[in-house]
């Protein structure tokens, strides 16, 4: 009984780590830059494929690849904001109009990125084997790659949190999240900060993608599923709370693990049910005011 319980919790945490990472990225992009990025999952997919290709063709260690793909996707995200979303922001009369327009634009990006990927990499399922050995945890066996994944997800999130809490740039980001106009008046280069946040969001997605590819099969159409999960987690944690997204990720991971234990077919139903009920009862999220 206790072993089963531990089994459920640990596999929940393992999945939750990835969810948290994905959600923190999306939360940065929405909470600060006000872009509900529907193409978030496509960045995850690029991160995953980058890792896969480098491992298969050049034998590069997937963990090392995190440090290669991450910065590349950061730059892509950064310049995407500097071009596309900056223009949109300039043409939008209000924050609400910008939110609507940027949501649709990111939907367009989803199509562009996904189909370029299909044209290059095809639509087949791909996977590789990395650290696929069992580790005994309290009587249950867990694959080592998933432990590594969890470890990295936590380390990356923590590092980022410390960055937000203690560095000058982190403070500028938090100020911009609360009130971009006032932050601008206080001398924060607001366009730069928003672009950085979008870049950081893409960076997180890339990390998550790399970690995912170590444990699960990947396809060029995998993005949407993770985007949806990220949106659910972000709503769960409160649309503009980065800490909330982190906690929400683990929470959803555990809920998913419990439901999967009871009835595997209902995991996604449960996610959406939680999501819809939460939106109705508490749209500001579990940590919201």
């Amino acid at each position: 009984m206790i072993t089963t319980f531990l089994d459920i919790v640990i596999s929940g945490l393992l999945m939750g780590g990835i969810y948290a990472l994905i959600a923190v990225g999306l939360s940065l992009q929405y909470g600060v830059a006000r872009v509900l990025n529907i193409s978030h999952g496509e960045f995850i997919m690029i991160g995953a494929f980058g890792t896969y290709i480098l491992y298969k063709t050049a034998g590069v260690n997937p963990i090392l690849t995190l440090a290669i793909c991450g910065p590349v996707l950061f730059l892509i995200g950064f310049f995407l904001y500097k071009t596309l979303f900056k223009i949109l922001l300039a043409f939008s009369d209000s924050a609400e109009i910008f939110e609507g327009k940027s949501l649709l634009a990111s939907f367009g990006l989803l199509f562009i990125i996904q189909n370029i990927a299909i044209l290059i990499w095809g639509a087949d399922i791909k996977s590789y084997s990395f650290l696929n050995i069992g580790v005994d945890l309290g009587g249950a066996l867990f694959p080592a790659n998933r432990m590594v994944t969890l470890l990295f997800a936590v380390v990356i999130s923590m590092t980022f949190y410390l960055f937000l809490a203690f560095t000058r740039m982190g403070k500028a980001i938090r100020a911009a999240a609360q009130n971009p106009r006032i932050a601008g008046l206080m001398g924060v280069n607001i366009n730069q900060v928003l672009a950085l946040c979008f870049g950081f969001g893409a960076l997180m997605a890339s990390f998550a993608g790399g970690l995912l590819s170590m444990c699960y099969p990947i396809t060029t159409t995998m993005g949407m599923e993770y985007t949806v999960i990220a949106i659910i987690v972000v709503v769960l944690g409160g649309l503009d709370s980065i800490v909330g997204s982190f906690i929400g990720g683990f929470l959803l991971g555990i809920v998913g693990s419990i439901v999967t234990y009871i009835e595997p077919g209902l995991a996604l139903v449960a996610y959406y049910a939680i999501f819809i009920i939460l939106l109705l009862v508490r749209p500001t999220g579990i940590l919201g005011k």
């Binding site: 509900l36 609507g100 996604l268 959406y272 819809i276």
Partner: peptide
């Protein structure tokens, strides 16, 4: 009564909820 982006997210979630529930 949900405003702005929340309404968009909700309606989007609704489609998926129906699809997955029905499949189950």
């Amino acid at each position: 009564r949900l405003k702005g982006i929340y309404f968009a997210i909700f309606t989007f979630g609704l489609v998926m909820l129906i699809a997955y529930s029905l499949l189950f």
